[in-house]
Amino acid sequence: DVEPGKFYKGVVTRIEKYGAFINLNEQVRGLLRPRDMISLRLENLNVGDEIIVQAIDVRPEKREIDFKYIP
């Protein structure tokens, strides 16, 4: 289970104008929005990159997770 405030290693699987989709595993995916990136820009991410993200909002009923990147 993903818990708000905890850090997780994930893989960038898709990049859109509104953010990057990060997979923690095959069943768990969330969104990293540009506003939640500190010292990292969306255009510097590539599909396949491994990054450490912090879960900031977890909505299991909608199967949605918002992430934050903190270097």
Rank of each mutant, 00 (worst) to 15 (best):
R33K: 08
V58T: 08
V12D: 00
Y69E: 07
E50K: 14
Y69G: 02
E3D: 09
V12A: 01
P34E: 13
Y8V: 03
L45Q: 00
E64N: 06
I51C: 05
I22W: 02
V58S: 08
L24W: 02
G10T: 02
F21P: 00
G30L: 03
Y69V: 05
E26W: 15
P4G: 07
G30S: 01
P4R: 14
D57V: 12
K68P: 01
E16D: 07
G10D: 01
L24N: 01
R35N: 11
N44A: 12
N44W: 14
D49T: 08
G30Q: 01
A20C: 07
E3L: 15
V2E: 02
F21R: 04
G48Q: 04
S39N: 14
D1N: 15
T13D: 06
V12T: 01
I56V: 12
P4M: 13
G5I: 03
V11K: 13
I52W: 14
P60E: 09
R14H: 10
I56T: 10
I52L: 11
L40H: 05
Q54K: 10
F67P: 01
E16W: 10
K6M: 11
R41T: 15
E64H: 11
Y69L: 05
L45E: 00
D57M: 14
K62G: 07
K68T: 08
V47P: 09
I52A: 05
F67T: 01
R41G: 10
G30R: 01
F21M: 09
Q27N: 15
V11T: 14
Y69T: 04
M37T: 05
Y18I: 08
Q27E: 13
P34H: 08
L42C: 03
A20Q: 00
I70C: 08
K6G: 10
F67Y: 02
R63F: 14
Q27W: 15
L40S: 08
K68E: 04
E26L: 13
Y69M: 04
D36Y: 08
Y69C: 03
S39I: 10
E3R: 13
L42M: 09
R33E: 01
V12S: 00
V58K: 05
V53I: 08
I52E: 07
G48L: 06
A20M: 03
I56Y: 15
E3I: 15
I15W: 03
E50P: 13
E61T: 10
E64R: 09
G30D: 01
Q27H: 15
G5V: 03
V11H: 10
N23K: 13
Q27P: 04
D57S: 15
K68L: 09
N44T: 10
G30N: 02
F67G: 01
K17C: 09
G19A: 07
D66M: 09
R33H: 05
V53N: 00
S39V: 11
L40T: 07
E26Q: 15
T13S: 13
R41L: 14
P60G: 09
G19D: 00
N25D: 10
R29C: 09
I65P: 02
E16Y: 12
R35I: 09
F7Q: 06
P4A: 15
V12Q: 00
D36E: 06
K6Y: 10
R33Y: 02
F7C: 08
T13M: 09
A20N: 00
I65C: 04
R33C: 03
R33M: 04
I56D: 05
E43H: 12
K68A: 15
F7Y: 13
G19F: 05
E16F: 13
V58M: 06
F21A: 03
I65Q: 03
G48S: 05
Y8K: 00
E50M: 15
L24D: 00
K68Y: 08
K17N: 13
E3Y: 14
R63V: 08
I56F: 11
E50D: 11
L45F: 04
D57C: 09
K62Y: 10
F67N: 00
S39C: 12
V2K: 03
T13R: 07
G5P: 03
E64M: 11
G30A: 03
R63I: 07
I22H: 01
G10A: 04
R63A: 13
N23H: 14
G10P: 00
V11G: 02
I38Q: 14
I56N: 05
K62H: 10
N25T: 12
Q54C: 10
K68R: 15
R33V: 03
M37D: 03
V2A: 05
P4S: 11
V53C: 04
L31H: 03
D1V: 15
R35E: 11
D36W: 08
L31E: 02
P71H: 10
P60A: 13
K17I: 12
R29F: 13
R33G: 02
V58G: 04
K62F: 11
Y69N: 04
L42T: 04
L45G: 00
V47A: 05
D66L: 12
L40E: 05
R29D: 07
V28A: 08
L31V: 06
R63S: 13
D49A: 07
I38L: 11
R29N: 08
R63Q: 14
R29G: 12
E26T: 14
I56M: 14
F67M: 04
V47D: 03
I70A: 13
K9D: 05
V58P: 05
L45R: 01
E43V: 11
T13Y: 08
V2N: 02
V58C: 04
N46M: 15
R29P: 03
N46E: 12
I52H: 07
G19C: 03
Y69Q: 04
I56W: 11
N46D: 10
D57Q: 15
V12R: 00
R33W: 02
I52T: 12
E61N: 13
E43F: 10
L42P: 04
D36A: 06
V12K: 00
R35V: 09
P60L: 11
P34Y: 08
N23E: 12
G30W: 03
I51F: 04
I70F: 13
K9R: 15
T13I: 07
N44L: 10
G5N: 08
V28G: 04
K62I: 10
P60V: 13
F7H: 07
G19K: 03
A55R: 04
V53F: 02
E43I: 11
Y18P: 01
